[in-house]
């Protein structure tokens, strides 16, 4: 069971690399925000499955913080983008 969790955690984390391709290429700032959003979601999933792999429930709080604050950041940057600051 723990081996399965480890495999899932590694698989979900390795998708961040593909999202980073769009982060490097993206012609506008909006593309980069979309790629960053996806990367944060994949990082959250990898974090949750790593917590299940390591059998420490204390790691799960970091996942909640990461999920909520990454979307808060997206809202803040959309706000800045709308006001023409970027």
């Amino acid at each position: 069971m723990t081996a399965l969790y480890a495999v899932v955690a590694i698989a979900e984390t390795s998708l961040i690399a593909l999202a980073m391709v769009r982060l490097a290429l993206g012609p506008t700032v909006s593309d980069r925000i979309v790629a960053l959003n996806t990367a944060a979601a994949q990082a959250t999933l990898g974090l949750l499955f790593f917590a299940a792999f390591a059998d420490r429930s204390i790691y799960l709080d970091v996942g909640i913080w990461l999920a909520s604050f990454s979307y808060l950041g997206t809202l803040i940057w959309a706000r800045l983008l709308e006001r023409g600051l970027l």
């Binding site: 390591a54 059998d55 420490r56 429930s57 204390i58 790691y59």
Partner: peptide
């Protein structure tokens, strides 16, 4: 090693 937190230690 694991995290230095002693609540609910791993199996």
């Amino acid at each position: 090693s694991t995290a230095p937190v002693f609540v609910s230690p791993p199996a």
